[in-house]
Amino acid sequence: MRQPPGNTIAQEAMKAWRITAAIYAVILWLATVAGVVVSYLYDFPWSIVIAAAALSAISTYLFVFLLPKFRWRRWRYEVFEQEIYIQYGILIVTRTLVPMMRVQHVDTKQGPILKRFRLATVTISTAATTHEIPALLEEDASELRDRLSALARVDEDDV
């Protein structure tokens, strides 16, 4: 079996993922509070509200504190002359080889949370699908985008 890819994504990715998860957790907690209000006003069973609060607490812990660290540890990538090797996943580890000759275009994208930490995601498009390498430092993402674009052009010229 092939060795895992050698390059990691930026460590600030964990912070960005935690903030994103916290935003979703706040929405989940607001729904839980709404359940408390509904339960109080309309004699709704409290057992359901308690179960929702427990589920909210467990989800918050998992998605805000625990999973970002595991996601960061698994995300790896490596660029070779003929292919891009990507590995990600926590319980189910996915290893993807993207042939350079299939690459149609390469983009970088950056939302407000990634921008706050000066991170960007590299998006690699083929005819069949799109692959992402998330949360690279802005400079690294730009260099990787340019390198992949150049390698894809060279491979195209060889055909």
Rank of each mutant, 00 (worst) to 15 (best):
L41M: 13
Q3S: 14
I19C: 00
A120P: 11
K15F: 09
T60R: 03
P4E: 01
R71K: 15
W29M: 02
M101S: 12
I48Q: 06
Q11L: 00
A22F: 04
Y61K: 10
T60N: 10
L114G: 13
E81A: 15
A135P: 08
N7Y: 10
M101V: 15
Q11F: 00
F117D: 01
R73D: 04
S125A: 12
A31M: 14
S125N: 03
N7G: 09
Q82G: 11
A127T: 10
V64M: 00
R74N: 09
A31Y: 14
A13C: 04
D146P: 02
R147T: 13
A25N: 05
H105A: 01
T129Y: 05
D157C: 04
V26W: 01
A13Q: 10
D43H: 09
K109M: 10
F65D: 09
N7P: 06
S59P: 12
T129Q: 13
A16H: 04
F80K: 06
V122L: 01
R147H: 12
E81Y: 06
K69G: 15
Y42V: 12
F80N: 05
F80A: 11
V154D: 09
F70Q: 14
G35W: 07
L55H: 13
M14V: 09
P5G: 02
K15W: 14
I48R: 10
L136W: 03
L97D: 06
K69A: 15
K69T: 11
Q110K: 13
I9L: 08
A16F: 01
K15G: 02
H131F: 14
L55D: 05
R95H: 03
I23Y: 06
I124M: 00
A152H: 00
Q3W: 08
Y42F: 15
D140M: 07
E156Y: 10
I133C: 07
R2A: 15
T121Q: 04
V103L: 07
E143H: 15
Q87G: 09
Q110F: 06
D158W: 12
G35S: 08
T32V: 14
A10P: 05
G111P: 03
I92E: 13
V49P: 05
E156K: 13
F70E: 07
Q104A: 01
R118H: 10
P134V: 04
F44K: 11
L62G: 12
W46S: 12
L28M: 11
A57H: 04
E12N: 11
V93W: 00
Q104S: 03
D107E: 08
A34M: 06
P134T: 01
E138M: 14
A22Y: 01
Y42T: 10
W29Y: 02
K115V: 01
Y40E: 14
T130F: 14
E12M: 07
I23R: 05
V93F: 02
A21H: 01
Q11M: 06
A10C: 05
L55S: 14
R102W: 04
L66Q: 02
G89R: 02
R102K: 05
P68I: 04
H131L: 02
T108E: 07
N7F: 11
S39L: 15
P45H: 12
V37H: 07
L119C: 06
L114N: 13
A51K: 03
W72M: 03
D107K: 08
W72N: 06
F65S: 09
Y88R: 15
I92G: 05
T8P: 08
W72E: 06
